[in-house]
């Protein structure tokens, strides 16, 4: 990661987390009160979604294009 990108990440993180510290969060769950929780959750959640979905795809959900069209052609032959 180059310097510009690193700086951008740091700015986003610092700006949004500092908002958290200014706010008076209300809510019953612990994550409503943990500063920066949403930032981490966003990052980790996004990575989990991509990795898990791709794993499903590789496990058999993804098929070549025209999968059904070819099947229909087979059946009429």
């Amino acid at each position: 990661m180059n310097k510009g990108r690193g700086a951008a990440v740091a700015v986003i993180a610092a700006a949004t987390v500092s908002l958290d510290l200014l706010a008076h969060p209300h809510g019953e769950m612990w994550w409503h009160h943990a500063p920066g929780f949403d930032l981490v959750f966003g990052f980790v959640g996004c990575a989990v979604i991509v990795v898990v979905s791709k794993a499903f795809g590789k496990a058999g959900l993804q098929r070549p294009e025209r999968f059904y069209d070819d099947a229909e052609k087979d059946s009429t032959e």
């Binding site: 986003i12 949403d38 930032l39 966003g42 990052f43 959640g45 996004c46």
Partner: peptide, 11 residues
């Protein structure tokens, strides 16, 4: 919300 969106954008 901004944190969530920022975190997602980073990932």
């Amino acid at each position: 919300s901004l944190q969530l969106l920022g975190g997602t954008a980073l990932a």
